[in-house]
């Protein structure tokens, strides 16, 4: 019988047939004895309410990887947020066609880009006029000509930071490397790092134009 479930431990909602329940809560990993079920309704509105747990106070041991509510991230900074993907291409028309038709991305050239080797910005879901997603938990990203990557390392994602030099110094202290120092592109400030495992990625310095009223600028 199809039911609506709420995890009593973490308040995660899901629907499932009561003869085919997931073995663990997909969010907090507790067993089915914690699942509260109620009859399914087509509107999928739950009557069972479970208060969401609160984050722990104080510093947590980073090697304690048991389930917990994610920490509070401070307001007034976007430091550390994983904000973009970057796919390199060798054939611009093919990349544009494939991603638009196969994954329904909305793809536009960036202003002033080289027409033969365009840098393309990709919306992968609903967004606001400033080309930021309008709902949580997905990102936009770039399609970029592989020949324009001087590192040859195909950096694959982008993390926003408060300050490029401070982040680079800290990364080196923890086993990372600077593959390309601060540079400007399209009015934005970037650098390219490798993490302690050799994976390459961009860091992007928060622009001075941010007002902190944007939905994507909100704190925890």
């Amino acid at each position: 019988m199809l039911k609506l479930y709420t995890c009593y431990k973490c308040c995660f909602p899901f629907k499932a047939d009561d003869r085919n329940l997931p073995p663990r809560c997909p969010a907090c990993n507790c067993g089915p004895e914690w699942f509260l079920g109620e009859p399914y309704n087509p509107e999928e509105k739950r009557r069972i309410h479970v208060d969401p747990p609160e984050p722990e106070e104080g510093e947590r041991d980073v090697f304690d990887i048991s389930y917990h509510v994610a920490k509070r991230f401070p307001a007034g900074t976007r430091n550390g947020r994983l904000r973009r993907f970057v796919f390199e291409y060798t054939d611009a028309p093919r990349a544009r066609r494939d991603y638009a038709e196969l994954l329904d991305w909305d793809i536009v050239d960036c202003e002033g880009t080289d027409a033969a080797h365009p840098e393309m910005f990709c919306a992968t879901g609903p967004g606001n006029p400033n080309w930021e997603p309008s709902v949580p938990s997905f990102i936009y990203g770039f399609l970029k000509d592989a020949s324009t990557d001087p590192t040859g390392m195909a950096p694959f994602f982008m993390i926003e930071v408060d300050n490029i030099e401070e982040t680079a110094a800290r990364a080196e202290r923890f086993g990372g490397r600077v593959l390309r120092g601060r540079y400007e592109a399209n009015g934005q400030q970037y650098a390219v790092l490798a993490d302690s495992e050799g994976n390459a990625f961009y860091i992007w310095e928060t622009p001075a134009t941010v007002t902190w009223d944007e939905p994507e600028s909100q704190g925890g």
Binding site: P23, P26, N29, V62, G80, G175, G176, S196, N199
Partner: peptide
């Protein structure tokens, strides 16, 4: 993101970027 050395990778992303971490629920 792949890691070779578990403890080194945890320290890198938690200390450089302030990421919080937990083990992915099992069986899903």
């Amino acid at each position: 993101i792949p890691y070779d050395d578990y403890r080194r990778a945890v320290l890198f992303y938690s200390q450089v970027f302030g990421w919080d971490m937990m083990r992915v629920p099992q069986g899903v």
